[in-house]
Simulated scan of single mutants.
Amino acid sequence: MAQSGKGKLNYRCPSCFMRDLDIDMFYDKEKEEYYCLRCCYTGTEEDVKEKNQMARFRYRNMLKRYTTFE
């Protein structure tokens, strides 16, 4: 998904991404937090990074091909 350029760096919304929706978050400079337009998720950059790391853990073996099952 292309970055819209409204903030520093757009991250994927962790709440939407856990439901298999790929939605970019936007940055609010006044509140210094990220927010999602689709759901009501808001959070700091550290919180968003932490939750996105959980999503990476979920999909860590998605591109790995298993040929033997032991």
Rank of each mutant, 00 (worst) to 15 (best):
S4A: 07
E45Y: 00
N52L: 06
K8E: 04
I23E: 05
T67H: 15
S4Y: 07
D20Q: 06
D24M: 14
T67S: 15
N61L: 15
K49M: 15
L9T: 07
Y11C: 01
Y34P: 00
R58Y: 14
N10M: 02
D47H: 02
I23T: 12
F17K: 06
K29M: 07
E50R: 13
M18Y: 09
K31V: 01
Q3W: 06
E70I: 05
E32N: 07
T67C: 08
G5W: 12
F69G: 06
R56F: 05
Y41W: 12
Y41P: 02
T67P: 04
G7Y: 07
D20G: 02
R65W: 03
L63Q: 11
F17D: 02
R56I: 06
Y59S: 06
K31Y: 01
C40G: 08
R56N: 13
E46N: 08
D28N: 10
G43D: 11
D20T: 04
T67L: 09
R60D: 12
T68D: 10
N61R: 15
D47M: 03
R56G: 11
R12H: 13
R56W: 04
S15M: 04
S15I: 13
M18K: 12
Q53V: 01
V48R: 01
M1A: 14
K49P: 01
L37G: 08
E45A: 00
E30S: 03
P14L: 08
E45Q: 08
R38D: 13
Y27F: 14
K31F: 03
M18T: 06
G7F: 10
M54T: 09
S4F: 05
C40Q: 15
Y66R: 09
G5H: 07
Y41E: 13
D47W: 00
A55M: 14
M18E: 12
Y34F: 11
L21S: 02
Q53E: 13
G43F: 10
M54F: 06
Y34W: 04
M25W: 04
R38C: 06
Y59R: 10
L21R: 13
R58C: 06
F26K: 10
C16T: 05
E33R: 01
E45G: 05
K49Q: 13
Y66P: 01
K8T: 04
K8I: 10
R58P: 00
S4V: 08
D24P: 12
F57H: 15
E70M: 05
D47T: 07
N61Q: 04
K64D: 15
Y35F: 15
F26L: 09
E33H: 01
Y59Q: 09
